[in-house]
Amino acid sequence: MCPPRYFAVDYAINPWMDPDTPVDRERALAQWAGLRDTYRRLGHTVEEIEPQPGLPDMVFAANSGLVLGGRVLGARFRAPQRGPEAEHYRRWFTGHGYHDITMPSRINEAEGDFAWTGRLLLAGTGFRTEPEAHAEAQEVFGVPVLSLRLVDPRFYHLDTALFVLSEATGDSPGEIAYYPPAFSPGSQRVLARLFPDAVIATDADAECFGLNGVSDNRHVVLPAEAAALAGRLADRGYEPVPVELSELRKGGGGPKCCTLEIRK
């Protein structure tokens, strides 16, 4: 995770960003700290990277890399404003003992558009990550990759429209939650076939970034406003953990955007 010390909305690179809307940085820092402390309370280790001036979106650490089995695929951002973040995160990985690092040749916004199910890497495209980056990820990790097309610009990253609730085990493909209208008709059919028991989000759930959640297979950290989704998750046996991230949402991010999951 990266503290939002320099968080601001000085430009608009997604539909949620409005430079004319004031940002309360102190409130953003407090909300971010609440998310970090929630992870620690749930028993997870949180590593922090030092934020850099001039990079207000560096707080959205999920876009900085994908880590599976200790192997790292770095990021290559579409928006030039975020481009320098990739090198800062690469240096962090190098300095923390990660030696198998590949920096992508194609535009690849990392966990923003990649979701690991434990058996299959779901990969989004349509607005940010290039389709060719999906093949690049398959070569790096040697795991099957399933391409999914996003069609609603409000849900420009896969992690705004889908997240993994529990990873695959035995005959189970794992469980996901997602918002079907964010995907092309063909991608909707694929998801319905692979995950027939998925939790389906409402319009209201999606619009408050409810699908930008983080699950450890039991606890599900998600925005406090996603009350309907939280209820459905509780009915499935998960423990919803609501957090308040309204200030960071002004930059187009929620819990998952602020969280890079390191799978060693």
Rank of each mutant, 00 (worst) to 15 (best):
P3G: 06
P4Y: 00
Y6D: 04
A8C: 04
M17N: 09
D18R: 14
D18I: 00
D24H: 04
A28I: 01
A30H: 06
L35A: 02
L35W: 02
R40D: 11
E47V: 07
I49F: 08
E50I: 11
F60D: 02
S64V: 05
G69C: 10
R71H: 09
V72T: 02
G74D: 03
E85C: 11
E87W: 04
R90E: 07
R91Q: 14
G95C: 07
H96Q: 11
D100I: 06
I101E: 10
I107P: 10
E109C: 09
G112P: 03
W116M: 05
G118L: 09
L120K: 05
A123F: 15
T125W: 12
R128T: 15
E132L: 15
A135R: 15
G142L: 04
V143E: 13
L146A: 10
V151Y: 11
F155Q: 06
L158W: 04
V164P: 08
V164A: 07
L165K: 12
S166F: 05
S172R: 09
I176T: 04
P181S: 00
A182N: 06
G186W: 01
V190D: 06
D197V: 06
I200S: 14
A201P: 06
T202W: 12
D203G: 06
D203V: 11
D203Y: 11
A204G: 13
G213C: 09
R218E: 14
V220H: 09
V220K: 01
A224I: 14
A227G: 15
D235M: 12
P240F: 06
L245H: 00
E247P: 02
G251I: 00
